[in-house]
Amino acid sequence: MAMRYAVRAHNLSAQSENKIHDDAVARRFGFRGALVPGVEVYAYACHPAVERWGRDWLERGTADCRFLSPVHDEELVEVEAVEAAEGLALTVRRGETICATGHAALPPAAGAPSAAPETPPWRAPPAERPPASEASLAPGTVLGTAPLEVTPAAAAAYLAAVRETSPLYAEAGLVHPGMVLRLCNQALVQNVVLGPWIHTGSRVRNLAAARIGESLVARARVTANGERKGHRIVELVVQVVTGAGRPIALVEHAAIWRPRQLG
């Protein structure tokens, strides 16, 4: 039986540097309006996994999500989760349009790693960011973010912004996984100057639940930067850790950093 979760989408990044989240710029790229960030679409898709497995999924669950069609501000979207392949097959729709697909699972506890392999080193963001390019995002480049202090107010504001209905986060003092994935975007934003850009997908392995009151940083390394269908696409491996170095998540993150319209 399918599990369904409906949520009214909200564009948290309307005022961000990435103008793909601005109505006028997004329309120039052929979209109906500003795009809701993929990290928030991921946040919606996580809801069934947390409903199914609770805190265990935040501690050691996995998820992948690919973004296929835009979600716009205030659109009603539905997340459908169906038992499949020892987990949940996820589909995010607006009306009949499929916006994202993915899969979530809970590996056996015995197989959960205590730490992520090949942890990228941390590097402070540069005082002056270079423009995004094949050189500044070359494979092997190390990227880092400034510490994000997850205060109770910030955590509560994010839950309200993504219209999260699960009581788990507030009751247990835990950080929403959407906030964790947002740091993967910041690994790009804080290190290079980007034009309009689009997050295309992520593969996430949770290593521990982040707690409200902790600080979080992203340690990232560029693994690929190439062309696909005229787009320039960058791929990162990102580890999100607490300020004390406790691993929270290991993420493979992909984004179009230069759409073909700007090529």
Rank of each mutant, 00 (worst) to 15 (best):
G178C: 10
S114V: 01
L76Y: 04
V142D: 11
T141S: 15
A109V: 07
L148N: 02
L143N: 03
A172E: 08
V71Y: 08
A109S: 11
P113S: 06
L143A: 05
S133N: 05
S136C: 11
C99L: 11
L159C: 05
A127L: 13
V150F: 04
T91H: 03
P126R: 10
A153Q: 09
E78W: 11
E83A: 14
L137E: 01
G111F: 10
S133R: 02
A81L: 12
T119Q: 13
E80R: 14
A172W: 00
H103W: 14
G61S: 03
A127F: 08
V71P: 06
P177W: 05
L168Y: 00
E78T: 15
T101S: 08
V71Q: 09
C65P: 01
L137Y: 00
T97C: 05
V71S: 09
S166I: 02
A170F: 00
A63M: 15
A155I: 09
E96I: 03
S69Q: 13
I98F: 04
G144H: 15
F67C: 11
A138S: 14
T91L: 05
G111R: 12
G61W: 01
A85P: 00
E80D: 12
S114A: 07
P125A: 08
S69H: 13
E78R: 15
P177L: 07
V79H: 06
P125T: 08
A84Y: 03
L76W: 13
A146F: 11
V79N: 06
P113Q: 09
D64A: 06
G95P: 02
R66C: 05
R129Y: 11
T119C: 13
A135T: 15
L174K: 00
Y158L: 06
D64W: 12
A112S: 15
S69D: 15
